[in-house]
Design a protein around this nucleic acid. Structure first.
Length: 588
RNA sequence: CGGGGCGUAGCUCAGUUUGGUAGAGCACCCGUUUUGGGGGCGGGAAGUCGCAGGUUCGAAUCCUGUCGCCCCGACCA
């Protein structure tokens, strides 16, 4: 196959479009792969479409090899299936909703669990039909609050989603593993670096969930990992719990007047000035206990206040809180909440007071009190004394106060110990490029998908869900593989195998190039041929470099003597090549 | 949703403060020259100045409203 630059629907841009910030967005626009139509909506030009099809091809090959079968569902769906699973409402304003001429509600599918499940329900009814894994490559729609970074977070994006259907848990585990293995092969072929992290499964009600995360500065997720193989999403990070300390012989708590210390920093200053440590070391924020009041809204609509205690040198991490309290929604307590609970003295909250416990089941307020796992028995803290302008020091966990439980709410920091004992962790920015998920029976139950077992009894099917963002992966590859000159496509998904550039004005040179291109084409190579006349060599070279085909074959000077030049786009290496060696060089 | 910025030719932008005939570079078309790194010269086509209303003799420019886009944050199966 040969495409000629003289007729290709392509216009490269010399200047960076003002709308593009990140490299992939900028380069895909400039090199003429995509164009923006609306916020988070992109059109695909011939070059972009070719790469996209190649990404899809890799995914298809691995899906098929893993025994999955391809299907295709509509992107436009009626409301009913989503009503049954509760997602019509749960999804809120993140989905595009529309009405047909009879005012019937529809949506543009953000994901397809429901219709896959219903399709299997329609057709299958016996355990003998299982296992089954089916997939599609489909456009998904999400009304993102803020689309950004071009293809990395778009409102219309292409995704491969697969679903497995099994009779029992062992079957699900096997199907899951097959998909997981296929994902590893896909990312290796795409040349995309990844780490697999355990993810929180709460939101979708499943059991086991792992995310394929691609390390990149433009990522929106934080992964906690170390060189010894530990890796987890920051939401799923578990604190390594220190050993308890004997409380025997520890001094009794002391209450101090600490006016004007509403923040941890001011408290530490006052503590060092007024009641220095006996061992001479200075108090630090880590010696204080910060008590944060959160308001939870439970799925039944009820509202509950909880107090979360974290060491004062850490903050409460919103994402970790969200997971810790799901399905309840947590938000900072409002002024009204404080007004309704006079027992909570803002800025001076603590579990203890001179006149008895303030927080917890048996306390004055009865408010649930959850502590960071580091607050083990025997640790001593400076914290609020529940009186305005007063704090207490030497407050011993397990002796002077007891939490109602622990909560993973504190921020994770570089250097924190991994829960598996493998040592200190690092925090890296990543982007989710794939997700494998054991859904279990949630959707099958909600939608009534069951099969008859060997005894003729109904049994609910168990499901897995497996997603890869096709267009996001394409953009991630550009992020990971470009230089100041342009894109550098990995051979597996490059729009063409070789980019032949004919230079000069000598028609004899073009005639040679035509012959070589025809030979390459005949050996089933995909060739991009810059056959433009009256375009200067510099322009052609710049275009070749920004477009990013792995090999650039320059036919110009010396062409009539059979001497060409072969450029390696990735390394920048340029070597002479004899005409008679060209075919062999590219032989597949 | 909060904060910031921006809408003028396909792209990048000037002009707006101080109202007075719509501009530049690149890209595009024609001619010419050049041919190994976005070349030179000459000519040309191309814009409802986001949209609506208002003020004014006159609005890209001032006023009001509105729509859209980008960035940071919140949010994100």
């Amino acid at each position: 196959m040969t495409e000629r630059l003289s007729s290709l629907f392509l216009r490269t841009l010399r200047d960076d479009p003002a709308e593009a910030e990140v490299a992939s967005h900028r380069l895909l626009l400039r090199a003429g792969f995509i164009r923006r139509v609306g916020s988070g909506l992109y059109s695909w030009l011939p070059l972009g479409l070719r790469v996209r099809r190649n990404v899809e091809r890799v995914i298809r090959e691995e899906m098929n090899a893993a025994g999955a079968q391809e299907v295709l569902f509509p992107g436009l769906l009626p409301r009913e299936p989503y009503e049954v699973t509760g997602r019509w409402t749960e999804y809120g304003s993140d989905i595009f909703r529309l009405q047909d001429r009879r005012d019937a509600d529809h949506l543009l599918a953000p994901t397809h669990e429901e219709v896959f499940t219903l399709m299997v329900k329609d057709l299958y009814s016996s355990y003998k039909d299982l296992p089954l894994t089916i997939y599609q490559i489909q456009d998904k729609y999400r009304d993102e609050t803020r689309p950004r970074a071009g293809l990395l977070r778009a409102r219309e994006f292409t995704m491969k989603d697969a679903y497995s259907f099994d009779f029992d848990d062992e079957g699900l585990e096997r199907s899951y593993q097959l998909q997981r293995d296929a994902y590893e092969r896909i990312f290796k072929r795409l040349g995309l670096e990844y780490v697999i992290v355990s993810a929180d499964a709460g939101a979708m009600g499943g059991s086991k969930s792992e995310e394929f995360m691609h390390p990149t500065a433009v990522g929106e997720d934080t992964v906690v990992m170390n060189d010894s193989g530990y890796a987890a999403n920051v939401e799923a990070f578990a604190t390594l719990v220190p050993d308890a300390i004997p409380t025997d012989g520890l001094a009794q708590p002391v209450v101090h007047d600490t006016p004007d210390t509403p923040t941890i920093a001011t408290l530490v200053d006052v503590a060092n000035a007024q009641f220095p440590r006996e061992d001479g070391r200075a108090w630090s924020a880590a010696d204080t206990l910060k008590n944060v009041v959160l308001a939870l809204t439970h799925p039944d609509g009820s509202r509950e206040l909880v107090v979360v205690a974290v060491p004062g040198d850490r903050d409460v991490d919103d994402k970790r809180v969200e997971v810790a309290f799901a399905p309840a929604v947590a938000e900072p307590a409002s002024e009204a909440d404080f007004a309704a609970n006079p027992g909570l003295v803002k800025g001076y909250i603590g579990p203890w007071s001179a006149s008895g416990p303030v927080l917890g089941d048996e306390s004055r307020t009865g408010i649930r009190f959850l502590a960071d796992p580091r607050v083990v028995d025997g640790t001593q803290w400076i914290t609020g004394a529940n009186e305005s302008g007063r704090h207490v020091s030497g407050l011993v966990a397990g002796r002077d106060f007891t939490a109602d439980g622990t909560v993973e709410a504190a921020t994770v920091r570089e250097g924190d110990p991994a829960p598996d004992g493998s040592g200190p962790v690092q925090l890296i920015r990543t982007m989710e490029v794939g997700h494998v998920f054991q859904l279990g029976r949630k959707y099958a139950e909600a939608l009534g998908l069951s099969v008859l077992d060997q005894n003729g009894k109904r049994a609910t099917v168990t499901m897995g869900s497996y997603g890869i963002g096709v267009t996001r992966n394409l953009a991630a590859i550009v992020e990971a593989s470009h230089d100041e000159k342009g894109i550098i496509w990995p051979a597996e998904i490059a729009p063409f195998d070789v980019h032949v550039v004919a230079t000069g004005k000598d028609e004899a040179v073009f005639a040679v190039a035509e012959e070589v291109v025809a030979e390459l084409d005949a050996s089933r190579l995909e060739v991009l041929f810059d056959d433009r006349r009256k375009v200067s060599p510099g322009v052609k070279f710049k275009d070749a470099e920004i477009v990013g085909v792995p090999w650039i074959l320059v036919i110009g000077r010396g062409a009539l003597e059979g001497e060409f030049e072969l450029w390696n786009r990735a390394t920048g290496e340029k070597q002479p090549i004899r005409r008679e060696d060209v075919l062999q060089k590219f032989a597949k």
